[in-house]
Design a protein around this nucleic acid. Structure first.
Lengths: 152, 152
DNA sequence: CCACTTCTCCCCACTTTTCCCCACATTGGT
DNA sequence: ACCAATGTGGGGAAAAGTGGGGAGAAGTGG
């Protein structure tokens, strides 16, 4: 049993082969475990959650009132888009076609660690997103770091 | 046990070899520890944080909500741009290619100590930056000091 | 109900990259 | 001038990423 929640960091360029298989970066394998969950993420990427984190997300969504239109819509996409993944002997998973389409994944993908989750992006989608985001990176950084940073 | 946070100072000219390895200045090794973290810093340089300092940054970002677009973008860049580093027997680390590209590092680098963190610069980038900064050194000083605070 | 096609999964093999170790060059101090 | 410590380079073992073939399961049509 591992009580400490895994922290995923780093960027990895990988590729999906003709059979729809994607090798999970070795550094993420231990944290994700043998069996984990993939679903439609925000901003046209895929989220990969380890079992424990998946439970959390699930619990969080379950607490939303059924009456909220947006909550319903989000839950539907989140769960309908989900998929249980299992690593094969080479450390790869199969990404179902509907997830590949959602994320615009054909061959070249970027796998990134974002704290408690792993994200999978189509290469071009990621380049566009990250380029745009970098523009405001320093701006936000200054706010966050000077705001609540070293002191306090 | 060293409770006192390390203070890094000084400038060192080092080089990255063909395999992407960079020798950490001996004076920084104790302060950084055997295992530490590298991230995309501000102004096109890399930050190296000792474990404790990294934890602080991480904790700060963990509290940001997933629902905020800007927060998501920042978390992604921060964690995707991060990397766990470990000193080899010669006191070197491996700098992943995406970090080298970000900082414009090819061979000649400058490693500087800035209080609680260590920074790694591409040589040319550093020369340009420091030259420019030196010109306005006094100017900046006046702003900071007479202003009475860091912001505005 | 049976035969065929299709898809999935598992295993093996190859290529590339990463990591670890040893050896040399250079610097600074005694 | 010698020794010690630091910075630099390279070679070899191990691991990671990638690709392809074949057995088995599932879906389809006769």
């Amino acid at each position: 049993m591992e009580a400490a929640p895994p922290v995923f960091i780093g960027t990895y360029d990988h590729s999906v082969d003709d059979k729809g298989r994607l090798a999970i970066p070795a550094k993420f394998r231990e944290g994700l475990g043998q069996r984990f969950y993939a679903t439609k993420g925000l901003d046209r990427c895929l989220f990969l959650f380890p079992e424990s984190e998946w439970q959390k997300q699930q619990a969080q969504l379950a607490s939303l009132p059924l009456t909220m239109r947006d909550a319903r819509a989000y839950s539907r996409l989140f769960f309908a888009g989900a998929c249980e993944c299992e690593l094969d002997k080479q450390g790869r998973i199969n990404i179902p076609s509907y997830l590949r389409e959602y994320a615009g994944i054909s061959k070249d993908v970027v796998v990134i660690g974002v704290m408690s989750r792993v994200e999978v992006w189509g290469r071009e989608v990621w380049l566009e997103y990250s380029t745009k985001a970098e523009e405001s990176y320093e701006e936000i950084a200054e706010k966050l770091i000077s705001g609540g940073g070293a002191r306090e």
